[in-house]
């Protein structure tokens, strides 16, 4: 009879263990539970094979996620453990993919070839006892030397460099120091030049309005008071001048 009950209630047993663990958070019990639930990690990890990451790595990530899930699981919330663990594990695997996947993606073919190149490199290094030459790699992989070199290059290009990366041997110059940026100065000079040339075409009142409004940042009301006119007048004048300037600008380009 005792055998019957113990075989029948494998799942129930786990529930009891889980309840116990949620109370005590005993590490030995956790390890036992991890072993019991490892099959979940295995099943999920297997769903993600053939996406460019080895099964062993996926299984490891999934197992670690399982441990995390167990540690965060609270039986009193009323969820089943597997319903809690599944999204956690999938989430961790996805994060892993995100971290692992390259920012610049290579074509699938290139990726596969790179893998082969890597294998060939390891294999030849071991058998030759030194780093292989491109010609040897080419011969081993049945490709041309150019193809090998191109592959090696594409591997480099897919890895983004850090801006703090030193580009010289003395570790003095950082990559960021030599990267160009758009120079605003030129466009500033051109704009200034344009404004200077059109300001000449405005009469004194117009010039004054523009100058006070946009160089001294004064309000229309303020300028109107100084010039003894209504604010409406300044407003209309300003619109008229801006229209004129716009028109001139369009014609100048």
């Amino acid at each position: 009879m005792s055998i019957q009950t113990s075989t029948k209630s494998g799942a129930e047993n786990l529930e009891i263990l889980l309840k116990e663990y949620c109370k005590t958070r005993d590490i030995e019990l956790r390890n036992l539970l991890v072993q019991k639930y490892l099959y979940i990690a295995e099943i999920i990890a297997k769903k993600f094979v053939n996406r460019g990451i080895d099964y062993d790595d996926l299984y490891q990530v999934a197992s670690l996620a399982l441990i995390k899930a167990l540690e965060r699981y609270d039986i009193n919330k009323g969820y089943k453990f597997s319903s809690f663990a599944t999204p956690t594990i999938i989430g961790e695997i996805k994060n892993y993919f995100r971290d692992k996947s390259r920012i610049i993606r290579l074509s699938r073919k290139e990726n596969e070839m790179l893998k082969k190149l890597d294998e060939a490199r390891t294999h030849l290094s071991a058998t030759l006892g030194r780093s292989p030459k491109p010609e040897e790699l080419a011969e081993y992989l049945d490709m041309t030397v150019e193809e090998v070199l191109e592959l090696m290059e594409s591997n480099q290009k897919a890895n983004p460099l850090s801006l703090d990366y030193y580009i010289d041997e003395d570790n003095e110059t950082e990559l960021s120091a030599v990267i160009g940026h758009e120079e605003d100065g030129y466009i500033n000079v051109e704009n200034r030049d344009f404004i200077d040339s059109i300001m000449d075409k405005l009469n004194d009142v117009e010039k004054k309005v523009i100058y006070e409004r946009f160089y001294n940042q004064r309000s229309q009301k303020d300028i109107a008071e100084e010039m003894g006119v209504s604010q409406m007048y300044i407003s209309r004048l300003e619109r008229k001048i801006l229209r004129k300037l716009k028109h001139m600008f369009k014609n100048s380009i």
Partner: peptide, 14 residues
């Protein structure tokens, strides 16, 4: 049951 439950959770998570 165990298997189908798990597979349903997988669908729900993705």
């Amino acid at each position: 049951r165990e298997q189908s439950e798990l597979s349903f959770y997988i669908m729900e998570s993705i």
